[in-house]
Nucleic acid binder design. Structure first.
Length: 112
RNA sequence: UGGGUCGGCAAGACGGUCGCGUCAUCCGAAAGGGUGCCGAGGAACGUCCGGGCUCCGCAGAGCAUGGUGGUGGGUAACACCCACCCGGAGCAAUCCGCGAGAAAGUGCAACAGAAAGCAGACCGCCACGGGCCUUGUGCCCGGGGUAAGGGUGAAACGGUGGUGUAAGAGACCACCAGCGGCCCGAGCGAUCGGGUCGGCUGGGUAAACCUCGCCAGGAGCAAGGUCGAAUAAGGGGACGAUGAGGCUGCUCGCCGAGUCCCCGGGUAGACCGCUAGAGGGCUGCGGCAACGUAGUCCCGAGAUAGAUGACCGUCCACGGUGCCUAACGGCACCCGGACAGAACCCGGCGUAACAGCCGGCCCAUUCA
């Protein structure tokens, strides 16, 4: 699970990451990655719209994403901001599929 | 044993690894870290009612608008709950009714039918007048009488029997049903029981308008409050071309019109509101009950891009398949947890939803 300092919390941070970051679309998620150049731990934010389902389903997706992002924390460069947008249908796939989507997006965001 | 009906319980269990939030505590200058406790629901949901709380409004009365609608009680209050009444369904337990008013008025009603709301003459019935010849309990025509019978309909203007009549008719009579008035009795009351008189009977729909009684000020925790950067407008005061202020620590020199302070405003943001309350369990007492009351014990979510989880294992229900068994059932494998996530707090209602467990009552059956 992600601690508070690894979370994007303000609307400004979300906006700048979505605007400046590179976008990687998977089958169940869209991942925005922006490098700020600041020397601090990477931060993650999540967007789960109402199209995903009711509150229980949205909570489930967000918690799964948070848990897998926690495991990915060492692989992300410091100063990176990541916003994961969950697409409709993401509530029906197992956690492994979500994990694969995010890992693919982050590996493609690396320089080589 | 089977079926029905009403109510209650519970909402998979245990473990491992890695984590999250509030609070407490310890270490630390801080950032942060360690430890410990606690951490979703019966509907947390919909936001449909009712309150608390907060701000705004408020002489009094009326109107409008909205809500509500048998009676009595419970409650902070309600559209909720309890008891009872009436009507309906059921053998019964029990359930259902958005239960005021349809002789205040306006409106509406498919199809069928002759006619559907100051009813109505299609068939039929009945005398009367006329015609015919086949002289009959005849047929045809005419203008009338008639709601007993037929047929239509959800519904045809009380029912049965009689008197009466040309045939009929509450036209009249008896009984019955229903309506209204009055009286008596039971009940706090809705209402029920009985008596008497009356015109003899004037359908439905108010979740159509409407009428009557009763109840309602508005907005909502993004309420509201405290602190409050930055920036800009504004107000007041002091000083200022007799030089404010700056270059510049001081002097000279140069530049040359505002400078400083206070008030105020309340944005970004932070904090408070923010979780112990019309709270629950047990026992006693009052009450048919809802509930009230006394004593005693218990209670530990509080996030804010929004914590309460992710992954894995074992087991137990449900479901499926196969095998064994006369059957009850047993074994193996597979599948796999219903609806659903607090956001100021309570009381209700409504809606969603698998499978299960327990109990009361009713009916049927078997045995005694």
């Amino acid at each position: 699970m992600l601690a508070g300092r690894n979370r994007l919390v303000t609307a400004d941070d979300f906006k700048s990451t979505l605007r400046r970051g590179r976008r990687f679309t998977g089958s169940t998620t869209v991942v925005h990655v922006a490098s700020t150049g600041e020397s601090r731990p990477p931060r993650f934010g999540f967007i789960i719209t109402r199209k995903v389902g009711n509150a229980v389903k949205r909570n489930l997706v967000r918690r799964r994403l948070r848990a897998l992002c926690y495991r990915l924390l060492p692989a992300v460069a410091p100063g990176t901001d990541v916003v994961v947008r969950a697409l409709p249908g993401s509530e029906q796939v197992p956690s492994a599929t979500l994990h694969k989507d995010v890992v693919d997006a982050l590996s493609r965001s690396l320089p080589n």
